[in-house]
Amino acid sequence: MISLIAALAVDRVIGMENAMPWNLPADLAWFKRNTLNKPVIMGRHTWESIGRPLPGRKNIILSSQPGTDDRVTWVKSVDEAIAACGDVPEIMVIGGGRVYEQFLPKAQKLYLTHIDAEVEGDTHFPDYEPDDWESVFSEFHDADAQNSHSYCFEILERR
């Protein structure tokens, strides 16, 4: 099963200049909980913004210009990325925008964090048809001392 995991502000903004323009430790914990011990696929820009392999996960970098870091697996196509994951129950696609666009048609599940923030962004989550998805989990949280904005975790499964 292919799943996408993303944090989205208003207007589906997911990033600005290779960074997330908010401070939500709870979302980072949600991300870790849902990706640990699963292969993660990301684009080169996302890889560069993280700066290191995510521990406890097979890191697969999709790029037309593969790098030389041998701590991760470099691939040039969506099919190659899927094959590099091996026989696993769930593959997690973690961004960025172009990689989400490439995998959305193949995805069966979306793990979304909806952030109540209007922020400037240069990267967006692809538009998706809500009628194609069923919400199977939703959990709202107010902003607090650690988390700069209110947010809602949601899991959607393709109908």
Rank of each mutant, 00 (worst) to 15 (best):
Y128A: 03
S49N: 02
I61R: 02
I61L: 14
M42V: 00
F137L: 12
P21C: 14
L110I: 11
Q146D: 09
K38C: 14
P89W: 09
E80I: 07
I61P: 01
Y111A: 03
I60C: 12
H45W: 03
V136T: 08
D142A: 14
Y111V: 12
Q65G: 03
W47N: 05
F140D: 13
M20Q: 02
A81C: 14
D69H: 06
E154R: 15
D87H: 11
K109C: 12
S63C: 14
G67F: 05
E48C: 13
F153C: 12
E17M: 02
G56Y: 10
Q65H: 10
G95P: 01
V72N: 12
W74I: 08
H141K: 05
G121W: 00
T123P: 00
N34C: 08
A9W: 01
F125G: 12
A83P: 11
P39C: 06
I60M: 10
R12M: 14
F153G: 02
R12A: 03
A81M: 12
W47E: 04
G43A: 01
E154N: 15
L24C: 04
Q65M: 04
K106L: 05
V78S: 12
K106M: 04
K76T: 06
N23W: 04
V136D: 10
D144E: 03
E101M: 10
A145W: 08
M92V: 14
E17H: 01
L28R: 00
V13D: 01
D142R: 11
D144F: 04
G67L: 12
N34W: 05
A26H: 06
C152R: 13
A107C: 07
I2T: 01
D79H: 09
V75K: 09
K106W: 11
D11V: 03
D131S: 03
D87I: 11
R159A: 10
Y111M: 10
H141S: 07
P53T: 10
L62F: 11
M16R: 07
D116W: 15
Y100T: 00
A83I: 11
E154D: 14
L156D: 04
E80A: 04
P130W: 13
D142S: 10
D79N: 07
W74L: 11
D127C: 14
L4P: 00
N34L: 06
D131L: 06
H124Y: 03
L62V: 15
K38L: 12
Q108K: 11
D79Q: 05
L156F: 15
V40N: 08
D142I: 07
L36D: 05
P39M: 12
V10G: 04
K38N: 15
L104V: 01
Q65I: 11
N59H: 09
V119C: 14
C152H: 14
R158T: 08
Q65L: 08
Y111G: 02
M92A: 14
D116C: 15
P66K: 08
D79L: 04
E48T: 07
Y111K: 02
I41C: 15
R71Q: 07
R12W: 07
V78W: 15
E154V: 15
I94C: 04
D69G: 10
P21L: 02
E101H: 10
T123L: 01
Q102H: 14
D131E: 03
F153I: 10
E134L: 11
L54R: 00
N59W: 04
E134R: 11
Q146E: 07
W30R: 10
P39A: 09
H149T: 06
T35C: 03
D131A: 03
R158C: 07
A6Y: 14
I41L: 07
E80M: 06
E118K: 14
F31M: 04
A19Y: 14
F103W: 07
D87F: 12
D69T: 06
V13P: 00
A7G: 00
I61Y: 03
K38D: 10
D79S: 06
L104R: 02
L4V: 02
C85F: 15
N18C: 07
K109Y: 13
D87V: 07
T46C: 05
S63L: 04
L8E: 08
H149M: 00
G97E: 04
E134W: 08
F153E: 03
A145G: 10
F153K: 05
L110K: 02
F31T: 00
N37P: 03
P53I: 05
E139Q: 07
L8Q: 02
A83R: 08
F153M: 12
L62M: 12
G97L: 01
N59C: 11
T113C: 06
E129M: 12
S148C: 00
P25D: 05
N37A: 05
V13N: 02
R44L: 02
P53E: 08
H45F: 03
V78E: 15
K32G: 03
R44M: 09
V119D: 10
T113L: 00
I50L: 15
P25E: 04
I91L: 15
I41Q: 01
R71S: 11
A9V: 10
A19H: 11
E120I: 08
K32T: 03
K109V: 09
G121H: 01
H141Y: 07
G51Q: 09
N34A: 04
S63Q: 05
Y128R: 11
G51Y: 07
I94S: 03
G67D: 13
N18E: 07
H45E: 02
K58W: 05
C152S: 15
E134Y: 09
I60S: 03
V10T: 02
Q65V: 12
L112R: 02
A145I: 08
N147W: 01
A26R: 02
W47K: 14
T123A: 15
H114L: 15
V13I: 08
P105A: 10
A29T: 04
I61T: 01
I61M: 14
I82E: 08
I82C: 07
L8A: 05
R44Q: 05
A143S: 07
L62A: 15
I91A: 15
L4E: 00
E139N: 07
I60W: 05
P66G: 08
E80V: 09
Y151K: 11
L110C: 04
V40G: 07
E139T: 09
I5E: 02
V119Q: 14
D131G: 03
N34K: 13
F153W: 03
F153L: 13
A143K: 09
D79F: 05
V13L: 04
A26Y: 09
L156P: 01
A83D: 05
C85D: 05
D116A: 14
G56R: 05
N23Q: 07
H45N: 09
I14S: 01
V119N: 15
